[in-house]
């Protein structure tokens, strides 16, 4: 993605030189292979550090919450959808932002890649379709499509929804026949099977809250899990408290989650946190025809009321 990197640096340097923004949020090379870190550039020299590759997985909209400055942001499809959500939830103003949109071809799953090797990965490089992974004794080329992140495989909004400039031409959107087959598998389980599924999913959760911290939707000044008067949830490792945290966090994301996968990316225990939010995304789409973050013109279904809202579940 060298052409993306060059263009991002060029557009960013111009924005900063012309003083159109106070700073720009993007990615720079991480300190280990297959990692990109968030980077804030205030000068055109700092903008030279910006990169774009298949590892720009986290969601940069997370850094916009309640900022007062004029901000440039490098944003792929899902970041843009969370920017839209931030704007309609009054967490930032459209006029404060200069959005450099990145048409995205999907990011790679670092867990899928590392599971293909016994040794530690020591080097990473990429061309458009192929990634090259080095370990101490091995070097392998892998097709990018084989190791895409699961949310990128079902993504139908790779292009930025709102933007001021683009780093490249828009890409073709994927046509996905069955976007929610994973959710359906869980829906078909019996109550006990579901219980065991989620028990298993969460058995390694250490409650570090990295998933919450990485999620652009989780911006409450005091999260319910951190509240001490009243204390809504126990602080320890009791499975009931772990579940309560995940259930409630998921529900707070209902009708808002863009399936960006930042929560999964942040989890140090490789837990597929999206198993919780995916069901809510499916329901939002099926019940209200709603996908989060696609438009500034419409209020989300859960903060409006219409007389024909479905209510067959009420007796």
């Amino acid at each position: 993605m060298d052409s993306y990197t060059t263009k991002i640096r060029e557009l960013s340097a111009n924005l900063l030189k012309d003083e159109k923004v106070d700073f720009i949020i993007g990615f720079k090379q991480g300190t280990i292979p297959m990692a990109a870190s968030p980077h804030i550039a205030k000068t055109s020299e700092q903008a030279e550090q910006f990169i774009w590759d298949n590892n720009c997985r986290i969601n940069l909209a997370n850094y916009l919450t309640s900022r007062k400055e004029k901000i440039g942001i490098i944003a792929k499809g899902c970041d843009c959808r969370n920017i839209v959500t931030h704007i309609i939830e009054n967490k930032i103003k459209r006029e404060q932002l200069h959005i450099i949109g990145v048409p995205c071809n999907g990011m790679i799953d670092k867990i899928k890649v590392s599971s293909l090797f016994d040794e530690e990965i020591t080097g990473y490089s990429e061309t458009d379709e192929v990634i090259t992974i080095k370990t101490l004794s091995d070097e392998k080329n892998i097709n990018k499509t084989e190791v895409l992140k699961s949310n990128c495989m079902t993504c139908t909004h790779r292009n930025p929804v709102i933007y001021d400039e683009l780093v490249a031409d828009l890409v073709e959107e994927q046509q996905i026949e069955d976007q929610f087959s994973d959710v359906r598998l869980i829906e078909e389980m019996t109550a006990d099977e579901k219980w065991n599924h989620f028990d298993n999913l969460l058995k390694n959760c250490i409650r570090c809250y990295a998933c919450r911290n990485a999620c652009p939707l989780c911006y409450c000044p005091t999260c319910f899990v951190d509240e001490s008067g009243p204390q809504w949830v126990g602080k320890g490792q009791d499975p009931t408290d772990i579940r309560t945290f995940h259930y409630l966090r998921a529900y707070h994301c209902a009708g808002r989650c863009t399936d960006c996968g930042a929560c999964v990316e942040a989890c140090p225990m490789d837990i597929n946190v999206r198993d919780f939010t995916r069901k809510l995304n499916k329901d939002s789409l099926e019940i209200y025809g709603w996908e989060a973050g696609l438009t500034l013109e419409q209020r989300p279904p859960l903060d409006t009321f219409t007389p024909d809202d479905p209510n067959d579940f009420i007796k």
């Binding site: 109550a191 219980w195 989620f198 259930y247």
Partner: peptide, 25 residues
């Protein structure tokens, strides 16, 4: 999430609808 659906019920009952309340409970 694994809680039996039999445990979850929704109903609108006004404070004037005592008999409906009894029936639903």
């Amino acid at each position: 999430m694994g809680i039996e659906k039999e445990r979850l019920h929704f109903s609108w009952i006004s404070s004037a609808e005592a008999t409906k309340f009894v029936d639903v409970v």
